[in-house]
Design a protein around this nucleic acid. Structure first.
Lengths: 333, 333
DNA sequence: TAGCATTTTGGAAACGTTTACATTCGGACA
DNA sequence: TGTCCGAATGTAAACGTTTCCAAAATGCTA
């Protein structure tokens, strides 16, 4: 079959122990034999078997990333950030998406056991119960965008609430007061946080103005539907809980002959690549996704090899307001 | 440390063999003992060690994907397609990017040995030499977007040449004859194929018209620079080798006050998500990326478990012309 | 040259599974 | 009641490494 360390040992006329030592750069082996072994190994195209190696060393040099989905720019960026940081440390990346039931997610998680040194977990099912049931206690884990109170695991997530507050403040600062909001899926934690920020900031920045909330689900279609409602109700500005809905809304406004921002301002959330190419370019909150991925991996590495006084971290990453033409100060109605 | 099969065996008062049989659903075990074992295993939260298991079974239930990079919509979609098909078959995905030297790529490849059942390889370095040196002969491999003549491995790639031909034919059909081309990086195989298609189609569809080629490198900036040249030279249409350059070009045309397509038509290649949201929406060639990923994985599965009469496949996936406003028939100069 | 310290090498255990083979255990049948 | 048979279970080898420990080889000093 495949060439093993035994084959190399036999060909070199030494024991497997010596081959192992030579190949792993230990110093207790004569330069002469080391060279001979290296030469033979190269000639035979010997490549060590990862499974066997990690079985004995209890290290896989691999981290797992369990994500709810792989669709869209968000996960793409996240994976890129994770991969970037992993490569720098010589780690590999075992990804798995599991947009299914908690059980399915648990199965995916279980299958990673013994193949990864640690886990980056981002899952809508990842509550205390789930983790207690499916997560092996010995597996270092970092929770991404998944809130959890107990300091059991490190976690890192986006400051959705703060970002929404900032955006409302910005719009209010531009002179808009009747600001509508297009919400995300009700069960989505991030969507709820953004809504909460909107509500809070409205109460503070635009006192006396009744919050105006359109239901949505993060899709372009939902944004379009909300946009049609906005055309009828004429808020001064619309703040969509994500950019895709802002895009849908923008289309609806254009169809109705409204000019943005002159007739109605518009803002989104996420700063997807498309945002700056829209007409007009979209004001939005930028999420440093790749950076979050990098930080998550760094925290995971820390959890895998805990230093002297290790404590889990709980980060919330700030978002950045990106002002573009869609929220320029317009005519105050 | 972690709970092993031995712990379960001891707790259940049986041998490890019985535990293994019970857990793997073999039929030669009494329902009574099976149940007892299952219960104890659940109680102890036993989860089999993947490394140990794959060492003995010689199966990892994992495929590797070695990509040049993880940046951008292309790889995101590709990974999604691969993951989709992998999940359907209960396979996991070990991804690795290696936008570095051939040696680095080789090292990444080597590290996958023993951890994957097969490999999806997409690398600019993947020529015959490279494969002979770094690829273990026993590792089933599918080459993605990487041309290779010998039928050693299955391969799947995009019909870049055909796509470019189709686009030129479309533009010519719209009445444009002086069609310029913005090329990609000279060393890039896909870019070269698209250029070749442009040249060939121009000779056939627009005889007598000298091909007009602007240098580019697939970036928006390069597209902008080329667009500035186009403003001066006034071809009737510009065909960019990818959408990002088309976007840059579009910006340059707008800055110069040119209307698209009235003053100059524009087309791209790739159909990135952004393309349909531009003003005007961009005509482009759609690449079924996710589908390619799925197909690649399916071919890999075939190579891993070869049926009776297995032969490597060499697919080229057709691209699809997506006509939008940027290439509408304009005024013939 | 003998004795000792040190370096280099080899033998074998260990990692956690699966599985071929041997063993035991019931029970049916003569 | 003894024999035989099939099913259930246990024993141990195997997978390919790394590493502990013992053994051998080497160099040095007396």
């Amino acid at each position: 079959m495949s060439v093993t360390i035994k084959d190399v040992a036999k060909a070199a006329g030494v024991s497997v122990a010596s081959v192992s030592r030579a190949l792993n750069g230990h110093d207790n082996v004569t330069p002469a034999t080391r060279e001979r072994i290296m030469a033979i190994a190269a000639e035979l195209r010997y490549m060590p078997n990862g499974a066997a190696r990690s079985l004995i060393t209890r290290r896989t040099q691999t981290v797992g990333a369990l994500l709810p989905d792989l669709h869209g720019a968000f996960f793409s960026e996240l994976i890129r950030g994770i991969d970037l940081a992993a490569r720098q440390r010589g780690l590999h990346l075992l990804v798995s998406s599991s947009h299914g039931s908690p059980d399915e997610t648990g199965a995916a998680l279980r299958a990673m056991l013994g193949r990864v040194d640690g886990l980056l977990l981002m899952s809508p099912h990842a509550d205390d119960d789930f983790l207690a049931t499916h997560l092996p206690p010995a597996l270092p884990t970092v929770l991404v965008n998944t809130w959890l109170g107990n300091g059991q695991h490190s976690s890192i997530s986006v400051d959705n609430h703060g970002g929404a507050v900032t955006m409302v403040e910005h719009l209010a600062g531009q002179g808009y007061t009747r600001i509508a909001f297009i919400g995300g899926p009700a069960h989505n934690y991030e969507a709820r946080e953004r809504l909460r920020g909107y509500r809070e900031a409205m109460a503070r920045c635009c006192p006396g103005v009744e919050p105006l909330i359109y239901a949505g689900d993060f899709t372009e279609e939902a944004g379009h539907a909300a946009g049609c409602l906005a055309v009828a109700q004429r808020p001064q500005a619309v703040f969509a809980a994500n950019d895709m809905m802002a895009i849908g809304c923008l289309a609806a406004l254009h169809e109705a002959g409204l000019r943005v921002p002159h007739d109605m301002a518009l803002a989104g959330f996420d700063d997807i690549p498309m945002a700056r190419y829209l007409t007009p370019p979209l004001t939005t909150m930028r999420i440093p996704i790749a950076q979050i991925g990098e930080q998550a991996l760094q925290d995971l590495v820390l959890a895998i090899d805990p230093p002297e006084h290790f404590a889990t971290s709980a980060r919330t990453t700030p978002t950045e307001l990106v002002v573009r033409a869609s929220s320029e100060a317009g005519r105050a109605d």
